[in-house]
Structure formats: C-alpha cells, structure tokens
Design a protein around this nucleic acid. Structure first.
Length: 584
RNA sequence: GUCCCCGUAGCUCAGCUGGAUAGAGCAUCGGUUUUCUAAACCGAUGGUCGCGUGUUCGAGUCACGCCGGGGACGCCA
C-alpha cells in the first residue's frame, strides 16, 4: 500500500486500529504522533506513555503490545522501534520514500494532497483593514502579510477563502478630516500626492479639535451631516475613500494581495439596528448609563467590564459594526470560519465580541462559525513605544518596501554583476519584498518586536533570500543540464542512499506536517521553519552529492530530489505570498 | 486595583496539546572553490530556559507566588 500524503495521520490511524485490536476502544488512547528528531526517526508516537500511566501499566510493555498489533503493512513501510520508557519511533524505508516522492511530483499534486484537510469549508479572512485618509505605515504590515499567507494556506488546505478588507472608513475621525479639509486643503498638493495631503489635513483637523472644544463640536456637526447623507460631505467622503484606496492598492499590488471584498465599517451602517434589536430581544443586552451594553456574568472580568455596543447618544461604534459584520459573514458568506487579524491590544474586545456572538447566534438558532482573533505583537521603536522615525514621523510602508528593494538591488549587483540591469531590478523586487514579508512570517506572530531596518531587511540566515537562493540553484542545475524543470526525465531513479539524500528525502515528506500545523494554528512561521530546514537539507545535499553524474540511476534519483525540492520550496513560498526566481 | 501577553546563548528568535542530550540565525574563531550559483557548505565557542515553591516516571512547557517589560479595562477604532 502506498504512503498517503500526510504520513503522520496514516500512522495515527494505524495506531488507533492497533489499540482497537487490543480491545481498548473507548478508553481514550491518543497516539500523539509528531515529527521526530532525525536522530530517532521520522515520526514518533508518545501516546503510549500517557495512556499506560493512566491505566497503571508498564509503558514500555504497552508500547510493545501496540507495535505487535500494528497492521503488517506498517512494518513493510517503516522501521518501527521502541525507545526509552515507551516512545515508538517510525523510520520510513528508502524505497517507500521513493514511492511517496514519485506520486507527489508537481505543485498541483502537492495541492491535491493537502486539499482534503478543509475541503468544503468556507473561511472569511479579515485583514489589513487600514483607516482611510491615512497612509499605511509599518504597523500595517503584519496584518496584511500574515493575513495573506493564512488565506493562501487555507486555500491550500482545500477551503474556499473570502478575503475581506474591513476598512476603517466610518466614525468620528471623518468629522475631523472634513473639518480640516474644508479649512486647509491645498488643491495643488492634492493633485500631486493626494494621500499625503489628505493625511496632512487630517492631522491638522485632529490637532485643531481637542476634547471639549467648540472646534470639536463643529467637527461633530460635519460628521452628523455626513451620516445624515448631506450631499457635500458624502461627496467628500467618497473622494477620501477613492484617494485612500488608490494608495492602498499600490501597496497591495507590491505584496501580491487581491481582496474579494472591501466591506468597510460604512457598509454596516444600516445593519446595526438589527443587532440592537436582536440583542435586546434575546435578553443579552441592557441599558447602562444610557448606553446599550452586554455583560457576561460567567466571566471573571466581563461580568463587570461591559461590552458597549451602542453609545448613550445613540450612535453606533466599533462593537456594533463588528457584531453586524459577524452576522453578515455567517448569513451571506455561509462562513464556517472567520479569522480577524489585528494586533494584540484588541484581545479583550474580540473575546467579548466572540462571547456575545456565540450567545446571540445560539439564542437565534443561527449556525455558529469558528471565530478566531489572529492577534500579533506590536512593532515598536527602540524604547518599546510606538514607532517613530528619527524626525518623529511614522515609517511609511511604501518607504520600507522601496528601501528593501534598493538594498536587494545593491546586493544582487554585487553578487551577480553580469546579469542585465532589468533582470537585476526584477530580482531585487522579488528578494527585497520577499525579505520584508518573510521577516514577519518567520517569527511567531504573538511576540512583539522592535523595529530595525537591518532586521526587517536582513538578507542572510533564515530569510527569504536564503530560500530563494536554494530555488535558483535548483533551476541552475536543470538549466546547465539542458532539462525542462517542469518535466525532467526521472525514469530509473533508485531510492535515496547517501546520508544527505536520505535526509533531504525525509524532509520533503514532512511538507504535509508543516502545512498542517501552520494552518491549524494559523501560524505561518511553522511553514517558514520547515522551508528553511528543507533548504538547509538541500544545500547540504548539494555540497555533498554531485547531481549531474554519468551513472544514469544516480543521476535520475538526484535529479528527482532536486525537482521535488524545487516544487516543495516553490509551493511553500507561493503559499506564504512570496514570489520565486529562476536566477539570482 | 482587576485581567491579558511576554521574559530561552552576546544579539534576534524557534521550541507544536509536558517527552528523549534545550535548537536555529547573526556575531566571534577555524576550515572548504581545477566539480552543477561560496547569497553556499563543514566544524568550534557560547545556556542555573527571569527568580522561587509545587504537581509527576518526566517541567522551557502545567499550578501558585514574586521580579522585570508591554498592554487592555464605559461611550476611540
């Protein structure tokens, strides 16, 4: 029997079947399969230890029973060994490795293998979500980059993914922008660099309307006029949205992001009344100090800390639109899962939101989507505070990307001076943007980090250039040998033999596990780490074993390893949102 | 005051539901190119996992307390 795409779940089923043969159904045996330290095997099962402990058995003897009861085909595919107090180790036999590599022979087949995990599911991913009338700065990078990677990973796992950009295009700041615009907008500057000018008048408007001032009241009047549909202000609002979107689109194009929907807060303006009504009818919401709030009596803190869904003046707020948004996504998109990417400071808000949604939907009998707040740490300056440039402004995302490409261009020019300039420019774009994306993706999203140009634009170590370089070297082999890398002649390939061949082949099979854990935990860094290790295994193989040799069997099996490394690295990188290169 | 997140090598970080000798990259030191891209490879140095107590066959991982950093807590989003 052939090894399936996801070897760990194959072993998981085999061990469960084995436990069942031992008459252990319903006793809660969990195999606990995981990728092993290569010193011990390819996969290990630790579940015998926990189970034996609970059942007061000798763990080593119990593990032995499990192994003895394994289906015979498992013994044919793996070297199965016991170690220590009862770890079960599995090492895939070399000819079985070759069989797996033979079947998963293209990006398409890798996708097919991965797609069973979430086929039939619909996911709405809410990411980027900048505020209109402001430029994106480094703080906006994480949501966009991580969000896009998760979209692609969910797609790879077979889900239908809806990319939704929940723009901050409504609310009190618009009163201030209109206030500032009407007084200080400069038509010439607006024509030259619209988003820059818009941001300037917003900042002026904000500064001119301090709390409890007559100016702030005037700004509020502008907002009321806008919300009441007054033609002049509505036209201004549309103009602000268009200008902002133009600037955002430029960034999205460079990052390879394309949204299916841009349903900003304004879209939900007329959908909040239903939220108020249904929350009140189901007894979830109450009036407190004139505002409509939800308490969660079972929660240690939210029993006293309210979730404020409508302000005392009757106006809607963030919570109201988020509730309306959740309902829209469940009803209109039939979402099975909703992932919202914002920084960790909104953790409380989303915890309250999700609790409220669950109770509300339950009361109404609406079907419940899985709700995930995909939070990430802040990008801060050296002082741990909000990031500022030397002159006190924020670092614009556009400038960051430009600098990344510039640095990559200097490097490619130094390393490959013979390539034509146009190609070096193209390489610099891919390497520079990829480095920025990868620096964000490769780190556990939960942690904060201190911004540094060098860190963000690092070009060695566990970085995009290292991975892209490995890809380019594979392409180079095919180019030198005069072979088409999409259909290389691989007939007659023998199973991997040398230590480097074996290590590489074993790593290739684990792509399935990396994609799985990255997607299930909504943490792309697991895939990054895998790809980095794969590229390392390839580099070691490349240094140790020459590919283009005379012996046809050796040559075929090494070309096969090169080709599978290529498709795996490319599939992985593409599903993180990066582009790849044939030469650099 | 209540609650949340973080604290691992000189620096930046991995460590998946407790599992085998705590791993990478950068930096430092040494080696590798008549052979497919040296943006590479091989090796070395470097750790009381913030501190303490506890839970158990086993704790970086779980519980409690403390120290340090960040954050959220009623009409911003």
């Amino acid at each position: 029997m052939d090894l399936p795409f996801h070897v760990a779940s194959h072993l998981d089923s085999a061990l469960r079947a084995s436990a069942s043969r031992l008459g252990l159904n319903g006793r809660g045996f969990q195999p606990e399969l995981r990728v092993a330290d290569p010193a011990h095997g390819d996969y290990q099962a630790n579940g015998a230890l926990a189970f034996a402990k609970r059942e007061k058995q000798n763990p080593r003897a119990f593990a032995q029973q499990l192994v003895d009861a394994l289906d015979a085909s498992i013994q044919g595919q793996f070297e199965v060994t016991l170690a220590g107090p009862g770890f079960i180790n599995f090492r895939i036999k070399a000819d079985v490795l070759l069989g797996w590599l033979g079947r998963f022979d293209s990006e398409e087949h890798l996708r097919t293998g991965a797609s069973s995990a979430r086929s039939g599911q619909t996911w709405v991913v809410d990411y980027s979500s900048p505020n209109t009338a402001k430029q994106m700065h480094v703080g906006h990078l994480r949501s966009a980059v991580i969000g896009e990677a998760l979209c692609r990973l969910l797609t790879l796992n077979g889900a239908r993914v809806i990319r939704d950009n929940h723009l901050g295009d409504w609310g009190t700041q618009f009163g201030k922008i209109i206030y500032g615009y009407k007084r200080w907008a400069d038509p010439a500057a607006l024509a030259a660099d619209p988003i820059e000018e818009l941001e300037r008048v917003y900042q002026l408007g904000h500064a001119a309307t301090p709390a409890d001032s007559a100016e702030l009241d005037e700004a509020r009047v502008e907002l009321v006029k806008l919300q009441a549909g007054e033609a002049g202000n509505v036209a201004l609002w549309k103009k602000f949205s268009e200008v902002s979107w133009g600037a955002f689109q430029e960034i999205y194009d460079r990052l390879g992001i394309k949204f299916d929907h841009v349903l900003g807060e304004s879209f939900y303006n007329d959908k909040v009344d239903r939220v108020y009504r249904e929350l009140a009818e189901s007894g979830l919401a109450e009036i407190s100090d004139g505002a409509l709030v939800v308490f969660h009596s079972e929660h240690p803190r939210f029993k006293t800390q309210p979730f404020l869904v409508r302000k005392a003046d009757g106006a809607s707020n963030y919570a109201a639109t988020d509730l309306a948004t959740a309902l829209y996504r469940a009803e209109h998109f039939h979402a099975d899962g909703i992932a919202i990417l914002t920084d960790f400071r909104q953790a409380d808000h989303f915890e309250q939101l999700f609790l409220t949604v669950q109770k509300w939907f339950a009361a109404r009998g609406y079907r419940q989507p899985e709700l995930h707040h995909v939070s990430f740490g802040a990008v801060t300056g050296e002082d741990g505070k909000a990031l500022k440039t030397r002159d006190g402004g924020t670092i614009k995302l556009k400038a960051l990307l430009d600098e990344a490409v510039e640095r990559a261009f200097a490097l490619v020019t130094e390393k490959s001076p013979d390539l034509p300039e146009a190609e070096r420019r193209e390489i610099a774009r891919t390497v520079g943007i990829g480095a920025v994306q990868y620096s964000d993706l490769s780190q556990n999203r939960s942690s904060n980090y201190v911004f540094s140009w060098d860190k963000m634009l690092a070009l060695d170590g566990n970085t995009a250039p290292y991975l892209l370089y490995a890809v380019a070297r594979v392409h180079s082999i095919f180019r030198k040998a005069g072979l088409d890398p999409t259909h290389p002649p691989l007939a007659g390939a023998t199973p991997p033999e040398t230590p480097q061949e074996l290590a590489l082949a074993r790593r290739l099979v684990q792509f399935a596990d990396a994609v799985q854990s990255a997607t299930n935990q909504l943490r792309p860094h697991f895939l990054c780490l895998y790809l980095f290790e794969l590229a390392g295994a390839y580099s070691a193989f490349y240094a140790a074993d020459k590919v283009i040799v005379d012996d046809p069997a050796v040559r075929a099996r090494r070309l096969l390893l090169c080709h599978r490394t290529l498709i795996t690295l490319e599939t992985g990188l593409h599903h993180l949102g990066l582009r790849t290169l044939e030469r650099m």
